[in-house]
Amino acid sequence: MTSSYQTQFKSINYTAMKPGVRLIVTGAVHGNETCGTTAIRRVMEEIDTGKLHIAAGSVTFVPVVNTKAYELGQRGGDRNLNRNLFPNEAPQDFEDHVANWLCPLLERHEVLLDLHSFNAQSQPFVMVGPRNNGGLLEPFRHAEKERALARRLGVKRFVDGWLRTYGQGVKRRNKGGSEELSLQLRYGVGTTEYMRSTGGYALTLECGQHQDPQAPEVAYRAIMNTLAFLGVIDAPSPDPIPLEDMEALSMVEVHDKLADGDTFSRTWSSFDKVAKGEQIGVRADGTPVVAEFDALILFPDTNAKANHEWYYLAQVNRHFDKYMDT
């Protein structure tokens, strides 16, 4: 019997008579990250029962983006959907079919809130995009709006610099020509990067550890705050997190596994501090891997394969508030 994930995708839209912002909220881009799914379904139930009313604009909910990965209870179906997210005229795997449905859906909206969770215990955080720029890597013009929304999600930790840092790693490891480099840079594009490429703005909210019972609450609060702040529901706009209470970080380096035998020297979690000269891991040939400067570790991946991202380093960003409203 053919499983439903192989034959259909689902989104639910609520549109008010009064014009306004077109918002899309997504969950389970990674199938084992279900806090967003739980929160989205909770909000939809409140709308369907009349407890909540869409007053202006519209909101589209996608409780489960990657249906195959969700059904299997794992991060990806055939691969990581949040890489190389583009329409594909000759889809090769399940995630290509998801992209062919999801990308046009994103294009019809102005704002994306993408809800995720992570492996190790840590505080929730929000990933924001670049400053306004006209560059080739990630041109953008909505930094003020994006960061204003980020401050209303209810979390205090903010991280930027993903695609720029990823791109630096690609350039370092690239041994081919410019065409190969371009293809590799595309691999760093996920939901939020694609949304920005279409003229919108987007946030990735990491709501907590996968099994943390508070993670769905973090996701629910973020959805409600977003709906209120954008005027989609008739509710008081949430106050922004004060600048002095924010922890703003920028990703600055990515380090790859060079061999499958590379190992960490301890169990690292995102946002663990590492001092200059401190050992982070050891290469398969016995060479120690040490921090070249004081930093925080992000996204340590014990299961990374050779020539893939192993861990990122971040530092405090003292200029994060350039595009903040006060």
Score class of each variant (00 low, 15 high):
N119F: 07
A235N: 07
S270D: 10
I297L: 13
Y201E: 06
T15N: 09
K18T: 15
Y5M: 00
R196H: 09
N82Q: 04
G135M: 11
P288A: 04
Q123L: 13
R172T: 12
Y311M: 07
H210N: 08
M251Q: 05
S4C: 02
A202C: 05
F125D: 03
F320H: 07
A295C: 11
Y323C: 07
H308M: 02
S58E: 15
Q74A: 05
P87Q: 05
F299L: 12
D239H: 09
I241M: 15
E138G: 01
A235T: 06
S3F: 01
E180R: 11
G76S: 08
D234I: 08
G31A: 09
G76N: 06
P124E: 13
T226L: 14
A306L: 02
L72P: 00
D285T: 01
G176C: 03
T302F: 03
E46A: 12
H97I: 12
E244G: 00
A304N: 01
T37M: 12
Q209V: 03
V274N: 09
R22W: 06
G199R: 02
G200S: 04
S117A: 14
N100L: 00
E179H: 10
E206M: 11
G169A: 14
T204V: 14
F264G: 02
R318N: 10
T302C: 02
G134Q: 14
G36P: 04
S269G: 12
